[in-house]
């Protein structure tokens, strides 16, 4: 993307059962949202390793989104509870070393929340745009 119109690049980890299905619903409902987030479907938010988030930032992501089923609705019963704890640590650590709070985001989006998914992406892009490119953790060669 060109320099003059900066568009943040987002890697979005979506759990297969809720958030990816919710994103599908946004599609079926033709709800328009920015094209900045590229989805990666994972079995469960609980399968998202903290390494994935650090890796995405290092490879030049301006923002990373992890989205799973609402608490209590996990297809795998407990995966999102584990994700919540692990990713809390990631969020705290990123802020601690001085990475902007809004670079990492987590959401619960159910299969019925197409509109919410679109809203989450839109808000994320709106929050990222004024920050400019993420250079802090980006590898020079990325």
């Amino acid at each position: 993307m060109s320099e003059q119109t900066y568009e943040p690049k987002i890697v979005a980890f979506l759990c297969k059962w809720c958030s990816s299905a919710g994103s599908d619903l946004a599609g079926v409902s033709r709800i328009q949202y920015p094209a900045n987030a590229t989805p990666i479907q994972v079995p469960c938010s609980g399968s998202v390793s903290p390494m994935y988030i650090l890796s995405a930032l290092k490879k030049g992501a301006d923002g990373v989104l992890v989205s799973g089923c609402h608490i209590g609705d996990c297809h795998y019963l407990e995966g999102n509870y584990l994700a919540r704890r692990k990713l809390h640590l990631v969020k705290e650590l990123l802020q601690f070393v001085g990475i902007e709070e809004n670079r990492f985001r987590m959401s619960w989006v159910s299969a019925a929340e197409g509109a919410k998914f679109a809203e989450v992406v839109k808000e994320f892009v709106d929050d990222l745009r004024p920050m400019g490119p993420q250079e802090k953790l980006k590898a020079k060669r990325a």
Binding site: R84, R105, W108, V120
Partner: peptide, 8 residues
């Protein structure tokens, strides 16, 4: 009851 306020 782990904290989850940061999640949207």
């Amino acid at each position: 009851d782990d904290p989850g306020e940061f999640i949207r």
